Computed example of a mutant assay.
Amino acid sequence: MPSLAAALLDLRELDRLARLDTPVHRLDPRAKVLATAAFLATLASFGPREVSALLPLALFPVALAALGEVPFGLLARKTLLGLPFILVLGAFLPWVDRVPVLQLGPLAVSGGWLAFASLLVRGLLAMVTATALVAVTGFGDLCAALDRLGAPRAFSQQLLFLHRYLFLAGEETGRALQARELRAFGRPLAPREYGAFAGHLLTRSWERAERVHAALRARGFDGVLPARAQTAFGTGAWGFLLGWSAFFFLCRWLALPALLGGLLAGGGS
């Protein structure tokens, strides 16, 4: 139950951060979505064994978080939640490809380990960037930007409803767990009780969702949740999008770590 409460607090903290007034927050959400899409496309375009070439891309989420006043501790907590999934996905790569491709002193590194490290770096960068994007944009404005960019309205509205349903389901789960703990005097939930508990929780969540839907209909809900006032795609938005797109292009085609290493080596000699 404490972990559930902490997860809900983090989600509420992301919503609170999205209401800040910083230069990044004031940008048109479409610019941030398109820049993030360009970032993810660049991230996916590297070879499966690339590791060092991915590192300069970390500047994008770091800049988003720093300019948007997003605590790095929050980003780290949300990113660590997805780390086990990345580790599971790449767990077998070192065993699939055992051919040495790199020599680090006495240590021979196989292609599988490089692919695992590359997958880990890509996953962490993607999760940090997605969390920072939500924190500096807001989930509602993010879905509205997807809608304005031509994404199917059903898709953007389902994402928005899912975000709001997470709070509803989390609150109902917390109440159900608390009620059970008070009646069980600290006895842990037995395996045979999980099914009944899940069914009870689903029923409570469904009934509350129906009450929420009835309240929305009473207020004129027509199938589309309202978003905040739309912003204009001005000079700042174009500068943000084109500037970061140029940086991603340089990262992809100029091998910045190797170039920087050559410059440092040349300067040292």
Score class of each variant (00 low, 15 high):
residue 3 S to E: 15
residue 10 D to R: 15
residue 13 E to I: 03
residue 15 D to V: 07
residue 16 R to G: 11
residue 17 L to H: 05
residue 18 A to H: 04
residue 20 L to H: 10
residue 21 D to L: 10
residue 22 T to L: 11
residue 23 P to H: 06
residue 23 P to Y: 08
residue 27 L to H: 05
residue 35 A to T: 13
residue 40 L to Y: 05
residue 47 G to R: 05
residue 50 E to R: 04
residue 55 L to S: 02
residue 57 L to Y: 00
residue 59 L to Q: 09
residue 61 P to G: 04
residue 63 A to W: 12
residue 65 A to T: 06
residue 67 L to H: 00
residue 68 G to H: 00
residue 71 P to E: 02
residue 76 A to D: 01
residue 78 K to P: 00
residue 78 K to W: 02
residue 80 L to A: 14
residue 81 L to M: 11
residue 86 I to E: 07
residue 89 L to N: 12
residue 93 L to A: 09
residue 99 V to C: 04
residue 101 V to F: 11
residue 106 P to H: 09
residue 107 L to W: 14
residue 108 A to Y: 09
residue 113 W to M: 02
residue 119 L to N: 01
residue 119 L to Y: 10
residue 120 L to A: 11
residue 124 L to V: 13
residue 140 G to T: 10
residue 140 G to N: 13
residue 142 L to V: 03
residue 143 C to N: 06
residue 146 L to F: 12
residue 146 L to S: 03
residue 152 P to G: 11
residue 155 F to L: 15
residue 165 Y to Q: 13
residue 171 E to P: 02
residue 176 A to Y: 00
residue 176 A to R: 05
residue 185 F to D: 12
residue 186 G to D: 02
residue 186 G to T: 10
residue 187 R to P: 00
residue 188 P to Y: 06
residue 192 R to Q: 14
residue 194 Y to F: 09
residue 203 T to S: 13
residue 209 A to T: 03
residue 216 L to R: 14
residue 219 R to M: 03
residue 221 F to S: 04
residue 224 V to M: 09
residue 230 Q to P: 03
residue 231 T to A: 15
residue 235 T to R: 14
residue 237 A to Q: 12
residue 246 A to C: 09
residue 247 F to S: 08
residue 250 L to D: 06
residue 251 C to K: 08
residue 251 C to H: 00
residue 253 W to I: 02
residue 257 P to H: 06
residue 259 L to D: 04
residue 259 L to V: 11
residue 261 G to I: 03
residue 262 G to D: 15
residue 263 L to Y: 05
residue 268 G to L: 15
residue 268 G to A: 15
residue 269 S to W: 13
